[in-house]
Amino acid sequence: MNDLTGFQRDLLYVIAGADQPSGQDVKDEVETYYNSDINHGRLYPNLDTLVNKELVEKGQLDRRTNYYEISDRGRQAIEERREWEQQYIDQ
């Protein structure tokens, strides 16, 4: 996970916390957190990066709508990140 941008990590966390969100669902959640608009040109290439790194799986709800789901590898990456962060928080 150390090779992901902060934005990509945020996308990963949103996907991990939802039940097969669509790209629009992810976008809405991230926009709420960032308190700003996220354009499709930023969102979808970053989602594709997470899919290509096998942290997220992409499926199809219908011909126009994809869903995203955290993979086992993605869950493991989040757990490792939490452990790494915790060593600095507990000091």
Results as ranks from 00 to 15, higher is better:
Glu29Gly: 03
Ser36Met: 08
Arg63Asp: 13
Glu79Met: 10
Pro21Gln: 15
Gln20Asn: 13
Leu50Phe: 05
Ser71His: 05
Asn46Trp: 04
Asn46Gly: 05
Asp72Val: 12
Tyr34Gln: 07
Asn52Pro: 00
Asp48Phe: 00
Tyr44Trp: 09
Val30Gln: 09
Asn35Gly: 06
Asp19Gly: 11
Asp37Trp: 06
Ala18Trp: 13
Asp48Val: 05
Tyr44Ala: 01
Asn35Ala: 12
Leu55Glu: 03
Tyr44Lys: 02
Leu50Trp: 05
Arg81Ile: 02
Tyr68Ala: 05
Asn46Ser: 14
Asn35Pro: 00
Thr32Phe: 10
Asp62Cys: 04
Val30Ala: 14
Glu69Pro: 00
Asn46Cys: 06
Ser36Pro: 00
Asp72His: 13
Leu55Ile: 06
Asp72Glu: 15
Lys53Ser: 05
Gly23Phe: 11
Glu29Phe: 11
Asp48Thr: 13
Arg75Trp: 03
Asp19Tyr: 15
Gly17Asp: 14
Ile38Ala: 05
Leu43His: 07
Gln20His: 13
Asp37His: 08
Val30Leu: 15
Ala77Asn: 08
Gly59Phe: 07
Ala77Leu: 05
Tyr67Cys: 03
Ser22Ile: 12
Asp19Ile: 13
Ala18Arg: 15
Asp37Arg: 09
Leu61Trp: 04
Pro21Ala: 14
Tyr33Gln: 11
Asn52Arg: 12
Glu54Gln: 08
Tyr34Ala: 08
Leu55Thr: 04
Gly41His: 10
Pro45Val: 08
Glu29Arg: 15
Leu55Val: 04
Gly23Arg: 11
Glu69Cys: 02
Asn39Gln: 06
Arg82Ile: 11
Asn35Ile: 04
Thr65Ser: 07
Thr49Ile: 09
Gln20Asp: 13
Val51Leu: 02
Tyr33Gly: 01
Ala18Pro: 00
Lys27Leu: 14
Pro45Tyr: 04
Asn46Thr: 03
Asp62Leu: 03
Asn35Cys: 04
Gly23Val: 09
Asp62His: 08
Gly59Arg: 10
Gly59Lys: 09
Ala18Leu: 15
Asp62Gln: 03
Tyr34Arg: 12
Tyr34Trp: 09
Leu55Trp: 02
Tyr68Ser: 03
Thr32Val: 12
Pro21Asn: 14
Gln76Phe: 07
Arg42His: 04
Pro45Trp: 03
Arg73His: 10
Arg75Pro: 00
Thr32Tyr: 10
Val56Asn: 02
Glu31Val: 11
Leu61Glu: 07
Lys53Cys: 00
Arg63Tyr: 07
Glu80Ala: 11
Arg75Thr: 06
Thr65Gln: 08
Glu69Tyr: 01
Asn35Met: 08
Ile38Phe: 06
Pro21Phe: 14
Gln24Gly: 10
Lys27Arg: 15
Lys58Glu: 08
